[in-house]
């Protein structure tokens, strides 16, 4: 027997896993769809709850200065932006009918999505922190004015330190984590695309 025939014979001798029952297979399809839907719904519930909570605080504290209102709006925009971008990405990642396209096109699509995700996540993360902290700083003006100067300076100092820790530690950590997983996937995709072109 020549090598070709031998390889083919060995290849076909592989014991395959029994095909799952068709009903179970189709139930799995529905389950995946349901899981994605649940994740999206949970995001929107969280979003609505957070905004309602912020609105309750505002209603309870009766702000009079415009800076307080601007601060509240900025914080809400930051949260909306973050959740909208993650929901959009989930939708994009589970877009239907992509598996049917030629392999090279499929890989290019995956690469584009991942590059977009990297770009978007970094941009959104920066915007989220900037909006949230400028919102908080503006919101606090009205209440800080009622405090003695030293206490107000202390409060603002603490918030600034907290903001700097977030910017230089948590934001950097989040970007590094994202870079580690996403960067590895992007380089692998680029390598396979280059390989199919050779």
């Amino acid at each position: 027997m020549n090598a070709d025939d031998k390889f083919q014979q060995l290849w076909r001798s592989k014991k395959t896993a029994p095909a799952p029952d068709i009903k179970a297979l189709l139930a799995k399809a529905a389950k995946v769809k349901g899981a994605v839907k649940r994740k999206l719904i949970l995001s929107y519930v969280l979003l609505t709850a957070t905004i309602i909570w912020i609105c309750c605080i505002v209603a309870w504290s009766h702000p009079k200065m415009i800076t307080t209102w601007i601060g509240v709006v900025l914080a809400i925009v930051a949260i909306l932006l973050y959740l909208a971008s993650s929901a959009g990405l989930i939708k994009q990642l589970f877009a239907k009918g992509q598996e049917e396209v030629p392999v090279q096109e499929y890989l290019q699509n995956m690469l584009q999505i991942r590059e977009k995700q990297r770009h978007l996540q970094r941009g959104i993360l920066n915007a989220y922190f900037i909006l949230l902290f400028s919102g908080l700083a503006l919101y606090m003006i009205e209440y800080a004015r009622r405090l003695p100067a030293t206490t107000a300076a202390l409060v603002y100092g603490a918030v600034t330190v907290w903001g700097l820790i977030n910017w230089f530690y948590f934001r950097k950590k989040a970007i590094a984590k994202q870079e580690q997983s996403l960067g590895a996937v992007i380089s692998k995709l680029e390598a396979v695309i280059a390989d199919t072109k050779n």
Binding site: Q98, E99, E100, V101, V103, A184, V192
Partner: peptide, 18 residues
């Protein structure tokens, strides 16, 4: 061919499971 293409794409999708 269509089924194999879908299978290949699904295999390559595993690249994302780093």
């Amino acid at each position: 061919t269509w089924i194999f293409r879908i299978a290949c794409n699904n295999c390559l999708r595993q690249l994302e499971r780093s």
